[in-house]
Design a protein around this nucleic acid. Structure first.
Lengths: 322, 322
DNA sequence: AACAATATGTCATCCGGTTGACATATGAAA
DNA sequence: TTTCATATGTCAACCGGATGACATATTGTT
């Protein structure tokens, strides 16, 4: 059986209260007693039961993370930073892959509440989960408006859309198509599209957006319906990669005939596909900010921003450069 | 304050024991009482406190995952599947990014024990963590011998090394170099190198291995020291991508002058770098098997394999095909 | 009418650790 | 010698829920 405080006390020849005092550094403790206790703990290989402790102090030092999937390099990297930073602050991380499914997100949310997490950071992209309206515990959204009361952290999606579109125009593209993932109206990521449309119109060009909904035929369709396309702004790097594939299959040379700009610029993309021009999101900064705001909520500080927008960076490479 | 069983009982006009009976479906409960209780729970937005429950039943339904980083697409995907499968079994996942650091892995291990996880799946790659010798709780290693008592699940690294090397030889390569990450002798992944060396020698060729230790100069060095190199077997896809970059910079055409085989074949790699020939690891199957063995340990079944080796698949693409 | 099955309540105990109240002992400073 | 800070012990209550023992109704069955 796992040793408990009582067992440690018996071995050290002191009272349970004294052991607890040593563990929590409370009250007066003599040097020799402290040593005796530590020796006993080592001898028994004792470690405190956090579950019991959590129950009493009403705090678990647990944070729930809800994201679509760690498989995606952007989320993988974001989650990496979040876990890392949380761990430095003494918090542990419960991981939830919602897979873009509303029912999953709902049940994860319930699960996290039952497990008394101290806070939640959510970047899943499901619409209308009313549970967020009164979660009854600190929540921060990433790139996602969860409810009016929940603070959001995101990168400057509008700026990113502008930079991407402007670059393509500067490089001489005239028939520029935008392709994005499933549209959810409440998402700041939609600002990418808005910016694209604004910039296009400002330049007297007609915006045209395709939507990628797990149906691979859009890639082919895009080229069939727009043989004159000379620029594509993809809403993420994985989609950009698919576009590059399709162009290659059709013998369209990049960048002479077609220029492409992606979005995200994760480490993985930049290692595997360094030739892709992309808009880099400040992943680490997003994580830092989200956690900072969550901690403020947890510590009942009131002075946190309800929306934080971080700047993005254009990384130019071969797909837009001769 | 969060409602507790007592509050629900008061609202429903029944006793706390009856509420507990409803929650756990024990003993006799009348239909109308069950409804009253459910109504009261809904009204109060009650959800049981898992911390309290865990303390009593001595089971948390928590599993700890220790891996180097979710940033890496291979681990990201593996973790995705592990979390998914665990969640289907009613288990939750505590995520730990050890970052290849021994001290981090040690403290994560302690943390998981203090938090009373029901089991651990570890795929971190640090040597000599003696804590695994007697972890006092179920553990499964992935691609990693943790101790004599801990079961391992891995893909067939030797077979992978063979397939990769044989392919290069079949395609006419004669000067084949292998490049791998930091070598840890206890790792099954080292079998990739062993297989490479065996196949080379069996074919009268001289094996030569470079080690990549976060020092980017190896890529350049490799080509400087071996101008005649016509085949490279990289121990993972990210390294293969770097090699491709270096070759491109040097104007070496792939695949006519140089053929490359990578390793892992994750979804991300295959989307971003579909032209890379690679050895695909059965990520999902590894996750399934690891969890299956962990569950057997948790349920005190004794009939689990101490080592499981799953077959890999060669995926040929442009880097070895004209 | 008697008995069993069903339905619900009360009460106490336990899970492992924390904490406050209070008692007691020791040594050093005043 | 008195007094106080230091050091440790005992005891009980608490965190929220689970559970076993036992009592008491209310049904329905024979």
């Amino acid at each position: 059986m796992k040793p408990k405080i009582e067992d440690v006390a018996k071995v050290a020849g002191v009272s349970p209260t004294t052991v607890s005092r040593v563990l929590n550094n409370r009250g007066y403790i003599g040097e020799k007693t402290r040593e005796k206790v530590h020796k006993a703990m080592e001898q028994l290989n004792y470690y405190p039961n956090e579950v019991a402790r959590s129950l009493f102090i009403k705090k678990t030092f647990l944070i729930g993370l809800i994201f679509p999937t760690t498989s995606n390099p952007f989320y993988g990297q974001l989650i990496f930073h979040l876990e890392n930073l949380a761990s430095e602050l003494g918090y542990k991380v419960l991981l939830c892959n919602s897979q873009g499914r509303e029912d999953k997100e709902r049940s994860y949310l319930r699960m996290l509440q039952r497990n008394q997490v101290d806070g939640i950071i959510a970047g899943a992209h499901n619409k209308g989960i009313e549970e967020y309206e009164d979660p009854n515990l600190p929540v921060v959204g990433i790139d996602r408006y969860l409810s009016t009361k929940i603070p959001v952290v995101s990168s400057d999606n509008y700026q990113g859309g502008e930079k991407a579109t402007q670059l393509l125009i500067e490089k001489g593209c005239r028939s520029i198509v935008h392709i994005n993932g499933p549209i959810s109206l409440e998402t700041p990521a939609n600002m990418r599209r808005k910016a694209y449309e604004d910039v296009m119109e400002r330049n007297g060009l007609t915006p045209l957006t395709y939507e990628y909904e797990a149906n691979d035929s859009v890639f082919s369709l895009l080229f069939e319906e727009n043989p004159e396309v000379d620029g594509i702004f993809a809403s993420d790097d994985l989609i950009a990669a698919r576009v590059m594939q399709e162009a290659r299959n059709r013998g369209i040379d990049i960048p002479t005939k077609l220029k492409i700009v992606g979005y995200d610029g994760t480490e993985t993309t930049r290692l595997l596909l360094p030739e892709l021009t992309t808009i880099e999101q400040p992943v680490r900064e997003i994580a830092v900010k989200a956690l900072e705001i969550l901690m403020k909520q947890i510590n009942k500080e009131e002075d946190y921003e309800s929306a934080t927008i971080l700047p993005v960076k254009l990384i130019e490479s071969d797909t837009t450069r001769k």
